[in-house]
Amino acid sequence: MTVLPKDIPGDSLKVTVGTANGKPGDTVTVPVTFADVAKMKNVGTCNFYLGYDASLLEVVSVDAGPIVKNAAVNFSSSASNGTISFLFLDNTITDELITADGVFANIKFKLKSVTAKTTTPVTFKDGGAFGDGTMSKIASVTKTNGSVTIDP
Rank of each mutant, 00 (worst) to 15 (best):
A116P: 06
K125L: 05
G128M: 00
K23C: 14
K69F: 11
S136K: 03
P5I: 07
T134Y: 04
S55N: 12
T134V: 05
A129F: 00
L57Y: 10
T99Y: 12
F48H: 09
C46L: 13
F109H: 02
M135C: 00
K112R: 05
G102E: 04
V59H: 08
A116G: 06
N106C: 03
A71W: 04
L89A: 00
I138P: 00
D26A: 12
L4D: 13
F104G: 00
N106R: 05
S76D: 14
S55Y: 12
V32K: 03
V103N: 00
N70Q: 09
A105C: 13
F34D: 06
K125T: 02
V17F: 14
L87V: 01
D132G: 03
Y52A: 08
D7G: 11
S136F: 15
Y52V: 09
D63C: 09
P9C: 13
P24M: 06
Y52I: 08
V3I: 11
N74H: 00
K137H: 01
V32E: 06
C46K: 00
T144A: 06
K110A: 04
K6I: 14
G102Q: 04
N70G: 13
G25S: 09
V122E: 06
I84R: 06
G102L: 15
D101R: 05
A129D: 00
I98V: 04
L56N: 08
P121S: 08
L111I: 06
K23F: 09
S61I: 12
P66T: 14
S80H: 09
L13V: 14
V73A: 05
F109Y: 04
T19P: 11
K108A: 05
L50S: 07
I138A: 04
D53Q: 13
N106I: 04
A79G: 09
N145M: 02
I98G: 01
A71G: 14
L56D: 12
A20D: 10
L13F: 06
L87D: 01
K41D: 13
P121Y: 05
V3Q: 14
L57T: 12
F86W: 01
D36E: 12
T19K: 11
T45K: 02
Y52K: 03
V141S: 02
N91S: 06
G102W: 03
M40C: 14
D151S: 15
V103H: 06
P24R: 10
T27P: 10
S76G: 14
A116R: 09
Y52T: 13
D11L: 09
T94K: 05
S113Y: 06
K69A: 11
P31L: 11
T123A: 08
D126A: 15
K108P: 02
K117R: 06
D126P: 15
K23S: 11
A105Y: 01
V59Y: 10
D36Q: 11
N70S: 12
T92R: 02
V68M: 10
S147L: 06
T119A: 13
N74C: 03
V60Q: 10
T120K: 14
G82A: 15
A139D: 05
Y49W: 03
M135V: 03
F130E: 02
S80A: 06
T144H: 05
P152V: 14
M40D: 08
A100M: 03
P152M: 15
T120M: 03
A20M: 12
D26W: 09
A79C: 15
D26G: 11
T118G: 05
P152F: 15
K69M: 07
I107T: 03
K39C: 13
S61D: 08
Y49R: 01
N70M: 07
V103T: 05
A71S: 11
G146H: 05
I107R: 01
V28Y: 05
L89Y: 00
S85R: 01
S136Y: 15
K6H: 12
D132V: 03
G10H: 12
T27F: 11
N47V: 01
T94C: 03
G128T: 02
D11V: 12
T120I: 11
G82F: 15
V148P: 01
G22P: 09
T118R: 10
V3M: 06
G146R: 04
F86T: 00
V15N: 08
V122P: 04
A105M: 00
K14P: 11
T33F: 09
T134E: 06
